[in-house]
């Protein structure tokens, strides 16, 4: 690239800004970018189509049974009830734990933390944690929540593990949106005699909420699609009752899908695809809420 680009830069400097080569390169570059964008959409489309193609028939043929039945050795009778409840519980618990802690950490780091070595050490670690593979959080969850804190492979352990996994992303997203609130808002609050806490609580935080919520929901939707950490902490595949409280063992949609795809009977692969449709629908619904919040409540300064 540079070999070609350099002479053009030289030409531009000479004033031949509208040279044909320049225009050609312009076209090549922008169509390259378009192809790049399009490939992403194409991959998504292909994924949606494959899942739809393999699973829709199974889902549409007996939707009530698919949602209301527990697992079965007969793929035609197998349903996702326990896994669906498990995933819904996990979502709620993960949100419950990660939202206050994540937003609290972001507010502290952005508004209150002194600029010192310790703070920058914490900041660097949060950024690094965001890149840690999810299975590592599973190992952590197994060691700390399941074993050490004796929670067993319960919903509580699963929710805490997923919350831990979501935290770095939530903190980063919340900090970004706090940072986007102009200083003038804070200064105006101080000018009227507000304390720092009052300025944050009444002005900065509400203004940053849409962006924060978007970040929370997106990281939640990443969390509910996770399989590895749940398998590591010992989520069940076959369970024949829905959880009553957070101490109960649980199953989850990704775990069930993973298990069904590895079964010998091809009909289980169809059931897995059908469960995939349900999971995708949940993810898309959550992302839609995120987009709605951003569009509806976003403040322009």
């Amino acid at each position: 690239m540079t070999a070609v680009a350099l002479p053009i830069a030289a030409r531009l400097r000479r004033g031949a800004s509208r040279s044909r080569l320049g225009l050609l390169l312009d076209a090549v570059f922008s169509s390259g970018l378009f192809v790049g964008t399009f490939l992403g959409v194409l991959a998504l489309g292909l994924l949606l189509w494959t899942v739809y193609d393999r699973g829709w028939e199974r889902l549409a043929s007996d939707p009530s049974g698919f949602f209301a039945n527990f697992v079965s050795r007969f793929p035609a009778r197998a349903g996702i009830k326990a896994a669906l409840y498990g995933t819904a519980w996990l979502m709620g618990l993960t949100a419950l734990f990660s939202f206050p802690i994540g937003v609290g950490a972001a507010v502290y780091l952005e508004e209150f933390a002194p600029r010192n070595r310790l703070t920058s050490f914490v900041e660097a670690n949060i950024a690094n944690l965001a890149g840690v593979p999810s299975v590592v959080y599973g190992i952590l969850g197994l060691g700390v929540f399941v074993r050490f804190m004796r929670m067993g492979p319960s919903l509580l352990a699963g929710g805490l593990t997923l919350a831990l996994m979501s935290l770095p992303l939530i903190i980063i997203a919340a900090r970004e949106s706090l940072r986007a609130v102009p200083v003038s808002i804070r200064l105006a609050a101080y000018a009227l005699g507000a304390t720092k806490w009052q300025a944050v609580r009444h002005h900065v935080l509400p203004a940053a909420m849409p962006g924060t919520m978007t970040g929370v929901i997106l990281s939640l939707s990443r969390a509910i699609g996770e399989t590895a950490p749940l398998i590591v902490i010992g989520a069940a595949v076959s369970i024949f009752n829905t959880p009553d409280d957070v101490r109960d063992p649980f199953s989850a949609l990704p775990v069930l899908i993973f298990n069904w795809t590895s079964r010998p009977q091809p009909a289980f692969a169809e059931a897995a695809a059908a469960a995939g449709i349900v999971l995708l629908a949940m993810l898309l619904a959550m992302n839609t809420v995120a987009i709605f919040l951003r569009k509806r409540f976003a403040t322009r300064w």
Binding site: A95, L96, P206, N241, D244
Partner: peptide
């Protein structure tokens, strides 16, 4: 300097709404 605001936090309602997901999935079995 930092006086804690005593009254209910409005944006807490948003997190409460999320927590309500829990209520929606109480076991019926």
């Amino acid at each position: 300097m930092r006086r804690l605001g005593g009254r209910g936090i409005r944006w807490g309602a948003v997190s409460l709404a999320l927590a309500l997901v829990l209520a929606g999935c109480g076991g019926d079995d």
